[in-house]
């Protein structure tokens, strides 16, 4: 474990906590894309298949349980909870996210480390996570004004993978491992997708103005 990876995991955890706070505090999930939440639940369920087979550390297992349970809980909340489900912007959240799933399956079947059940599912989860934020970014552009907690949620979600890239660079130079090119490539694409959001987030923070994404 190095400081970059710990910072990445804590930032990721913080983004989940901010999202839970937003839904709990405002009793609303307006501005949140259910499709992105469903994609993230799928990412965690397919990446953490080893939860019960490979024990790496208490930290690793606890964080996996936290990410899986929080993402599933948020999807359940947005789909079935009588109060919050009514606040979901169903007509704005229209991204055809099953296309992202389909493309990720094809990519994982074509490009993977080893053709094993575990590695193909792992590659699928990496590709899917790289694009999972798209429905959320599209929803933010459509819904115009972005409430603070939602903006912070997206910001921390984007920042975590940037820390992971620093972690891979660090491990490249300090350990005799190198990270899979799949992680590098998908990690860069994932972080790049946030680039314009980061720009508008910084501008709104600098001008102390409401976060506005151009339509």
């Amino acid at each position: 474990m190095n400081i970059f990876r710990l910072a990445g995991d804590m930032t990721h955890l913080f983004s989940v906590l901010v999202l839970l706070l937003k839904i709990y505090a405002t009793k609303s999930c307006s501005g949140i894309s259910l499709k992105t939440q469903e994609l993230y639940a799928l990412v965690f369920l397919t990446r953490y298949l080893d939860l019960f087979t490979d024990f790496i550390s208490v930290y690793n297992s606890v964080m996996k349980v936290v990410f899986i349970s929080s993402s599933v809980a948020i999807v359940w909340c947005m789909r079935y909870h009588p109060l919050t489900r009514r606040t979901y912007d169903k007509d704005l959240d229209t991204f055809r996210h099953y296309i992202l799933v389909g493309v990720s399956i094809i990519l994982a079947l074509l490009f993977h480390d080893r053709f094993t059940f575990r590695e193909v599912f792992w590659a699928f989860s990496i590709y899917l996570e790289a694009v999972a934020i798209l429905p959320q970014l599209v929803l933010l552009q459509r819904s115009g004004n972005v409430d603070n907690l939602t903006g912070q949620y997206v910001f921390f979600l984007g920042a975590y993978r940037a820390f992971y890239i620093l972690n891979w660079i660090y491990r490249y130079f300090t350990e005799n491992h190198y990270s899979r090119w799949i992680s590098w490539l998908a990690g860069f694409v994932q972080t790049a997708l946030y680039a314009d959001f980061f720009y508008y987030y910084f501008v709104s923070w600098k001008n102390n103005a409401k976060l506005q994404l151009p339509a």
């Binding site: 995991d9 790496i56 480390d113 992971y164 005799n176 992680s183």
Partner: peptide, 10 residues
């Protein structure tokens, strides 16, 4: 060092 990073990350 040809071995790839183990799946020890989240």
């Amino acid at each position: 060092w040809n071995h790839v990073l183990p799946h020890d990350e989240l």
